[in-house]
C-alpha cells in the first residue's frame, strides 16, 4: 500500500505513534492515506481504535522490509 505520508515511529512507545498520527493527519488530503510504522505492540490495537474514534477508515497493516508493521488509515474527513 502506498501512503501519501509515512510516519516512522520505530522505537516509540504508545501513545507516541498515535500522537504522531493525530498531529500529521491534516497534512494528508481527504481521500489520502496516512501510515505509521510502529514496533510497539499496543499500536496493533490503538491505530484501529484511533481511526474509529476520529472517524477515519482503518485499512490494515502490512510488514515493512524490516518486518515492522506499517498501519494505514484513509483520511475520510
Amino acid at each position: 500500500m502506498s501512503a501519501d505520508l509515512l510516519l516512522d515511529c520505530r522505537g516509540m512507545l504508545c501513545p507516541r505513534p498515535i500522537i504522531e498520527l493525530g498531529k500529521h493527519l491534516a497534512e494528508v488530503p481527504v481521500g489520502g492515506v496516512i501510515a505509521v510504522a510502529s514496533d510497539d505492540v499496543a499500536a496493533a490495537v490503538d491505530v484501529p481504535a484511533w481511526a474509529r474514534m476520529r472517524e477515519q477508515e482503518y485499512l490494515g497493516a502490512e510488514p515493512a522490509e524490516d518486518g515492522v508493521p506499517v498501519y494505514s488509515v484513509r483520511r475520510v474527513s
Binding site: C14, V41, A42, A44, V45, P48, R52, M53
Partner: peptide
C-alpha cells in the same frame, strides 16, 4: 509491559 488483553480483545483504545 503489554497493554491490557481485555481492552485489546474488545478493540478499545489501550493507552490513556
Amino acid at each position: 509491559l503489554e497493554p491490557s488483553h481485555v481492552l485489546a480483545a474488545m478493540g478499545a483504545l489501550t493507552h490513556g
